[in-house]
Design a protein around this nucleic acid. Sequence first.
DNA 1: AGCCTCGATGTCACTTGGTGCCATCAGCGT
DNA 2: ACGCTGATGGCACCAAGTGACATCGAGGCT
Lengths: 170, 170
Amino acid sequence: MELFGERGYEGTTVADIAERAGLTKRTFFRYFSDKREVLFSGSEIFEGTVIKGVLDAPAKASPLDAVAAGLDAAAAIFEQIPDRAGKRQALLDANPELQERERAKLASLSGSVAAALGERGVAEPAAGLAADAGMSVLRVAFDRWTDDPHGQDLRKLLRDALAELKSVTA
Amino acid sequence: MELFGERGYEGTTVADIAERAGLTKRTFFRYFSDKREVLFSGSEIFEGTVIKGVLDAPAKASPLDAVAAGLDAAAAIFEQIPDRAGKRQALLDANPELQERERAKLASLSGSVAAALGERGVAEPAAGLAADAGMSVLRVAFDRWTDDPHGQDLRKLLRDALAELKSVTA
DNA sequence: AGCCTCGATGTCACTTGGTGCCATCAGCGT
DNA sequence: ACGCTGATGGCACCAAGTGACATCGAGGCT
C-alpha cells in the first residue's frame, strides 16, 4: 500500500513490492497468484462472513432477504477499516485491470451465495438471480459509502439500496 | 477461432494469430488493445442495439421492462450465429481471464444502459439497479441458451428469466 | 551430536503480453 | 516527380508469470 500510494498501481512492479517486503519476486508469486491478488487478500474472510450470514438468516426469510442478511453481517468488516477501504477503492477506481478482478471476485461471491441459498432450499435460477441482485445492492451501497465513509453507515446504505431494488423490480 | 480451436486460448500466442492473419504482432496490437479483445470485437454493435432498444421502448414501460426491451432487441444478433456463439462460449468457459473480460464488458454495458435509462427520466440508483438486474437476466438466459442453442429461443428464455427475477424480488 | 527430511525461499533462465520508437512503403493530391 | 499521410514492419525493451533446481533452516530420529 505504501508503494502503491507513492507510484500508483501500474508504476509499482512486483519486484518493487517483493523488495520492500524483503522477499523475491518468485516468492511473491508463491503467496499471490497474481499481482492483482495482493489487493484482494481478505476476500475469503469477507466471503465466509457473507455465507455464514446467509445460512444463519431466519428460515422464513425470502431469498433476497437472506442475501441481505449476509451482506449486513459482512458490512462490519469494512466499517472497521474505513480509511484502508477508501485507499483501496481509489486504487481500484484508477485501474480497469483491478476493476475486472473486483468484478470477478463479486461474481465468485455471487456463486457462493447462490450455493448457500441452494442449501436453504432455493432453486435455480431464483438463487442465482437473488445472489446477483445482492451484489448489485452491495455495489450501490458500497459506492455511496466510499464517497463519504463517515456519513451514513454502510448497513443503512445497504438497507436503502435493497428497498430501492425492490421498488424498481416491482 | 481456428487457432483457438486447435490449441486453445492459452496455447495460442499473439504471434501465432498475427501470422495466421498475415500480420505482425505489432499490428495485431494496433487493432486490438489486448489479446482478450479479439474475442469481443462485436460488442459495440451489441451494446448499440441494446441501447437503441431501451430508448425505443414505450414511454410508459417500467425501467426494468425498458431494459428487457433492449435485451430482446439484441437477442437477434446471437440467434443469427448460434454455432459461433457456442464456440466462443466454450472458450470463455475454459478461461478465467476471458470471463473477467466478459464481466467487464457486461459492467460497461450495464453502465450504458443505466445512462439510457437516465435519458428516459429514471434517476439513480434505480437506473443502475435496473440495468444490473437486466445483466443478470441476460446471463441466466444466455447460459441456458448456450446449453442448448436449438432448444427454446433466446427471447423466450429472456422473458422467463425476467419473470423469475420479478418473483424473486417481490 | 550427527543425520535426514521437508517446507520455505532464492536463483536463473525463459516465455509471452504489451509498448515505444523509428523505418518503410503505398496511395494520393498537387 | 514531389511530398504528405496513414498503415505496417522491425526491433529493442519492460514487466508479469512459470518451471527447474539449488539452498537453507527447523525439527525429528537414532
